[in-house]
Amino acid sequence: MRPVLEIDGLSVEFASARGPVAAVNDLSFAIGEGETVALVGESGSGKSTAAMAILRLIASPPGRVVKGRVLFEGVDLLGLSPADLRKVRGDRIGMIFQDPMMALNPVYTVARQIAEVLEVHRGLAGRAALDEVVSLLRLVGVPAPETRAGQYPHNLSGGMRQRVMIAMALECKPRLLIADEPTTALDVTVQAQVLRLIEDLKSRLGMSVLLITHDMGVVSQSAHRVVVMYAGRKVEEGATRDLFAAPRHPYTQGLLRAARRARADDGTLWEIRGTVPSPHAMPPGCGFAPRCDCARAACAAAVPELTRTADGHEVRCIVAAEGAA
């Protein structure tokens, strides 16, 4: 079966005063039909850049896709004309962002913003559009949708705004939903509701979901598969259950230990030492080597290759690959 989205060797650079900086390096992964894939990483890992690159939303300059393909239903999005790309955006692929207030226009009512997309992509207008808006708001669990439709974004709570954003992303029943930190700005009790909503809609509409997050708790709850990024590179990929039960890359291990608030021997919280390397001063070998407890000389010499194990698990680490072999 052909995957819905296939990213193949994607590399993105940003121009800076000190020369080009690689934000995403040779990233490949695929999302199957009805699958939720989580792209996990911390700040500077390149996960958001990768998501933006899929829909060609990277400001250029300074950003530039250096190489790679983004195949959506077999078509390379990076090669589409602007007009063809617009047909894909918002229609076949929906996107929701971390901060709904930034993505909603404060001077238009909720109804008008949703209706605008309906008009562009589905040719609905007037009464028909308004009815559709109300039914969409009902779909995403907005109470009293008739009233809410006439309100402005600032009248809504954070959770309601995120629901409106989801409604906008779902208007055209997309094949793929890209959710960039959809719950980070929300309160915990609301976060769970929004995650459940995305899960619900996914099965009802038969979408695939690309979930970009830094929160391992969110991942374990919603994703089938996890792609872990560190310093612009994919370091590990595997089925969520496998990866959480037996992470192979030392970084993934550390991340999970930190997320579980595990204790070190002296009773303090377990921490990954050091900081993410600056994109200007990437170590020549494995990006994680300077912070890694099992690093050896070879790790600093060259970027390790991705190794694939029998169960489809991939890991970019010399030490882990030896252990598996």
Binding site: P143, Q191, Q193, L195, G217, V218, Q221, F244
Partner: peptide
């Protein structure tokens, strides 16, 4: 959200609304 959810136990808060 916990990293290791107990199977069969929903993590959603049993409260609705904002």
């Amino acid at each position: 959200p916990t990293v290791d959810p107990v199977p069969g136990v929903s993590c959603e808060a049993p409260i609705g609304g904002d």
